[in-house]
Design a binder for these strands. Structure first.
Lengths: 342, 342
DNA sequence: TTGTAAGCGTTATCAA
DNA sequence: TTGATAACGCTTACAA
């Protein structure tokens, strides 16, 4: 099956390629009749323009790319939907690009920017520890969404929209303490995580401190790095170990809802109950936390608002209305059935 | 920031563009020294080739695209991982393209095929009710993965790898019947679903029939079409209605695990228990089914095997080793805690 | 081992 | 309102 090009279409119609191009791209300077004639021929012959050629020639393209690291993370599911809606509402097209766990998202972004003549980029997931020099290689506006950064980084190099992971993490641990828990284990990220993993852990430490509870390193359990991070499986394996160690604790704070669910399963398997024997709390506000039995106490991130604001900031950046900004949304403590007061 | 092209690099290096191209593409006919010199210049200046130009010029490209409809479906998560591994093992590159719920996947495929000079395509999700004429517009090999088709369709137009949805669905309902259940409700797909939704429903009907149980339309509950299909929320809402209708039943068969979990939640909310008051069974074999409380009885699809075979079939097609084939894998009945015998 | 030059399929410029 | 024609940035004969 030979490929049919714009030239072929032009010949069939007995017009020049320019005219065909005009018809395709809804240019004004074209006779309505010739246009509809051309469109008919195109339809009949199933002609589809080659995007590579278009992108090559075009100077810009009204597309926003969303780069997402860890596409399996259910937390991103709802966000993607909102991104798509918002971007299309602005009459831009939306392009979702998965980036591999061990790929550099900036490299991917630069490549894509050239290929698709992007107007803007949203980064989702990952740690995002890049040098300023690297960042400046991106010549289109970009926004980090729900990628909390340790504050030592100078925030003037990029824009972001997220919750204050440290503060919100503090809140839920604070809640646990107020319920009378003193021995609170945490399922945390490996220490090389300088992003949300570190921030949530810091919030945990600070809350304990403020309640006069000494940090017990035996209760700090790190996700396995040979299992995908933040997953149910990881929470399950880590909690099994914790339980087996006979370490004394009344509550487990998992830094994601998925981890929390894995923790619950591990608890059930040892014949114990949630929350009767152990209170379990998560973070994120995933749907499954509501459907789980018991439903999971968590900090709910306002995903919809975050996603909407991300796009708003991005377009403000594109339209040069603003310089770099950092929007922080509050999370909400959702108390459900997986925690009890002592 | 001016864009830097291959010509710029060539000038900087004092060589021709061909030589630079050779360096980039690991061509053999190039002096090692000039090559490393060029690569150094490229690195220093952060030159990144424009993919649109490459794709435009290249005749073919060793890329396989996976088009997926309903990317939020957790069932696809594991498959994607396997696809990526397998494709990279064959030294091809992997491209994941999301297709919108109301987009025509064939159109997307054709466009992409031109743009990226694809070697092959995998379709995941959706109903895939396309005419033969439409199918022939695709000029590269493709395979439908886990997209069961009603058998009236002539299978000589495409290849597929999946389970026998009708047969496996029959098995789990048969199991329920053997456990003494006679009033088995089903959470099924809308009747315009001619794919797995219909097949699984047909399996249910056949199993009941073989057990001499009359089909009770009051127990056939259809997913809401204003809620995303096959989701926990949908199962939850539908089950709430079922329960409120006071219809008599002892078991609920949901045609996906996510639906089953939603069903459980609805049951809990009315103060009833699973499996004591209602047995609940799902389909797919999602991880969450294991972690849920109670763990969910389900038909586990061998996702890894299916994904691997999909790629194998695709490459056989590409290498012209075979003509269209349809591989069927057996699913496995996994009895867990959400069902009991009467 | 290297370089020149001809496309790949579009869109944009400019003249008709 | 139309149509040549020149790019866009790259790969690849072909020639050197």
């Amino acid at each position: 099956m030979k490929r049919i090009t714009i030239t072929d279409v032009a010949k069939m119609c007995g017009v020049g390629v320019t005219t065909v191009s005009r018809a395709i791209n809804n240019h004004p300077d074209i006779n309505e009749e010739t246009k509809s004639m051309i469109m008919q021929v195109i339809k009949d012959n199933h002609y589809i323009p080659n995007n590579s050629a278009r992108n090559l020639k075009r100077a810009d393209s009204k597309t926003i790319a969303v780069l997402i690291k860890g596409i399996t993370n259910p937390f991103f599911n709802q966000m993607i939907k909102v991104f798509e809606e918002e971007i299309q509402r602005k009459k831009y097209s939306f392009f979702l690009q998965r980036v591999d766990e061990n790929q550099d998202e900036i490299d991917v972004a630069i490549e894509l920017e050239k290929e698709k003549r992007l107007k803007g980029i949203v980064f989702l997931g990952g740690y995002f520890s890049h040098s300023k020099e690297k960042l400046t290689q991106l010549s289109v506006p970009f926004v980090l969404s729900t990628i909390g950064m340790a504050t030592e980084f100078t925030p003037s190099d990029y824009s972001s929209v997220s919750v204050d992971d440290l503060k919100e993490s503090y809140k839920i641990v604070d809640y646990l303490c107020n319920q009378g828990h003193k021995k609170i284990a945490i399922i945390a990220a490996p220490m090389d995580d300088v992003s949300i993993g570190k921030l949530r852990y810091d919030g945990y430490k600070k809350a304990l401190e403020d309640h006069g509870i000494d940090l017990d390193l035996q209760l700090v359990r790190i996700m396995k790095d040979d299992i995908e991070s933040y997953t149910m499986e990881n929470g399950y394996v880590v909690t099994k170990e914790l339980l087996a160690s006979k370490e004394d604790c009344t509550a487990i704070y998992a830094i994601s809802d998925s981890l929390a669910i894995g923790a619950c399963k591990a608890i059930f398997e040892t014949g114990k109950k949630v929350p009767e024997d152990y209170s379990v709390a998560g973070f994120d506000g995933l749907d499954i936390g509501f459907y789980y039995n018991p439903s999971i106490t968590t900090m709910r991130q306002p995903v919809k608002e975050i996603a909407e604001e991300t796009i708003k900031v991005l377009f403000d950046l594109i339209n040069k209305k603003i310089s770099h900004t950092h929007k922080i949304f509050p999370a909400e403590l959702v108390v459900r059935d997986s925690t009890k007061s002592l």
